[in-house]
C-alpha cells in the first residue's frame, strides 16, 4: 500500500483540492447533538471528529426517493430516467461505513447490476477517516473496524496531521496531482499511527467475535427475550433507515394529473413496517410486531458470504436512534450468552 502524510497546516488546502474533483459532501454538525453528511459550502464546517451521522452514506448511492422511469400510459412505454449524476466526493466515512458500502455493492452489483446504484457509485470518490469508538460501537466484534479496500483515500489521525493510505487507482491519481501538499511518512508518524490504533483498540467496550452468533440466534428464536423486547418496539423503522446496510425499497407508479404520463419512483422501505410482508388477500409473511422485530435481527446477523462478515457492521446506529431505547448489542449479547433457554423446535 502507498502511504503519505498530510500535515495539519495543509488540511484546509486538502479539502479545497478534493472539492475540485466534484461536489464535496462531509459530516457537519447540524444541531446540538447531531451530525449529518451535507454538501460542503464552507470547509470550516467539515467535522473530523464525530461518532455517527443521522443518515448513513447509503443515501448518496440509493437516494431516499428517486425516479426510475417515466411512463406513457397510452403507448405503454417506460423511459429510463437516470437523473443528474455528477462526480462527487464523499469525505469522512468511518471504516464501518466503507464496509457497509461494499456490502451494498454485493447486493446492488450482483448478477443483476442496478444501473442507478452503479452510476452513483462510479461517480463518488470515497475518503475515509479514522475514528474512536463510543459506547454504541461494536465494529470490532463484526471485524469491520479496519478496512482494506473500498476507499480511494483513508486518513488516519496523527497528533500533527493524518497518515494517508491510498486505496485505489483514483486515489493514486488524486495524490499524484497534488503532491505539493503531501509529505513522506516519518518513523515518528508510524509510531503515532500505532499508538492511535492501540488506544482505539482499548476503547472498545467488548472483545471477541460474533461469528457463532447466527447459529445461536437460530437456536433461540423461541426465547422470551423476543416477546419482551418487541413489546417495546414502536415499529417506527428508525433502526433500518439509519442502518448503513439496510436497503429495502418500495416502488410505485405515480400518474401525473394529465392521466397520460407518470413516474415510476422508488423509495426506502422498512421491514419494521406492517406493509413490508403483506400480500394480496391480506396474508402477511411477517404478521406480528414480534415477527418483524426478529426479522431484523435474523437479517442483520446473517452472513454475507462475498465479504465474510455479517450484514451488520456494528455501527450502533440502530440502538442510538431507537426512540424506544431498545439496545441491539445488549440483546445480541444476552442471546449469545444465555444459551438454550428454550431449545429450537420446541413451542
Amino acid at each position: 500500500m502507498r502511504y503519505l502524510k498530510l500535515g495539519s497546516r495543509n488540511i484546509d488546502e486538502f479539502l479545497g483540492r478534493i472539492s475540485n474533483y466534484g461536489d464535496l459532501y462531509a459530516p457537519q454538525k447540524i444541531s446540538e447533538k447531531f451530525y449529518d453528511y451535507r454538501k460542503v459550502e464552507d470547509i470550516s464546517q467539515v467535522e473530523f471528529n464525530y461518532n455517527r451521522t443521522i443518515t448513513p452514506a447509503k443515501k448518496y448511492f440509493i437516494p431516499p426517493k428517486h425516479e426510475m422511469f417515466e411512463f406513457d400510459m397510452e403507448t405503454g412505454e417506460y423511459t429510463e430516467t437516470m437523473g443528474d449524476v455528477k462526480p462527487f466526493v464523499l469525505f469522512g466515512l468511518h471504516a464501518c461505513s466503507i464496509v457497509a458500502l461494499r456490502i451494498l455493492d454485493g447486493v446492488y452489483l450482483n448478477e443483476y447490476p442496478d444501473k442507478y446504484y452503479a452510476a452513483r457509485r462510479k461517480a463518488g470518490i470515497i475518503i475515509g477517516i479514522s475514528c474512536l469508538p463510543d459506547e454504541y460501537c461494536f465494529c470490532n466484534l463484526r471485524r469491520t473496524d479496519f478496512v482494506d479496500i473500498g476507499f480511494d483515500l483513508f486518513l488516519h489521525e496523527l497528533p500533527d496531521g493524518y497518515l494517508i493510505r491510498v486505496g485505489s487507482e483514483r486515489g493514486h491519481e488524486i495524490v499524484d496531482e497534488n503532491m505539493d501538499i503531501f509529505e513522506e511518512v516519518s518513523n515518528d508518524d508510524i509510531e503515532n499511527f500505532k499508538k492511535f490504533e492501540k488506544k482505539r483498540h482499548e476503547m472498545f467496550k467488548y472483545e471477541g467475535s460474533f461469528d457463532n452468533l447466527r447459529y445461536i440466534l437460530e437456536l433461540t428464536e423461541n426465547s422470551p427475550l423476543w416477546d419482551e423486547e418487541s413489546e417495546k418496539c414502536l415499529g417506527c423503522g428508525n433502526c433500518t433507515m439509519t442502518c448503513p446496510t439496510c436497503r429495502c425499497y418500495d416502488v410505485q407508479d405515480l400518474p401525473d394529473i394529465d392521466g397520460k404520463h407518470g413516474k415510476r419512483i422508488r423509495f426506502w422501505d422498512s421491514c419494521q413496517f406492517r406493509s413490508h410482508g403483506l400480500v394480496a388477500g391480506g396474508h402477511n409473511f411477517r404478521e406480528t410486531k414480534k415477527d418483524r422485530f426478529i426479522n431484523r435481527y435474523v437479517c442483520k446477523n446473517a452472513y454475507f458470504y462475498p465479504l465474510g462478515t455479517s450484514y451488520c457492521v456494528g455501527c450502533g446506529n440502530c440502538t442510538y436512534f431507537c426512540p424506544a431505547g431498545i439496545d441491539f448489542l445488549k440483546n445480541l449479547i444476552k442471546i449469545r450468552d444465555v444459551v438454550g433457554e428454550v431449545a429450537h423446535g420446541e413451542q
Binding site: V107, Y108, N110, Y112, D114, L213, R214, Y215, L217, E218, E221, C246, R247, C248, Y249, D250, V251, R266, D269, C271, H276, G277, L278, V279, F285, N295, Y297, V298, C299, N301, A302, Y303
Partner: peptide
C-alpha cells in the same frame, strides 16, 4: 415458495426469508 416481491432481482429485500444461517 412465494413472498411479496418488488424487484425480482435480489435488491428490494421484500422476499427475504429464512434464518440467520440460511438467509
Amino acid at each position: 415458495l412465494e413472498r411479496r416481491m418488488k424487484c425480482g432481482v435480489g435488491k428490494c429485500g421484500h422476499c427475504i426469508a429464512g434464518s440467520s444461517t440460511f438467509l
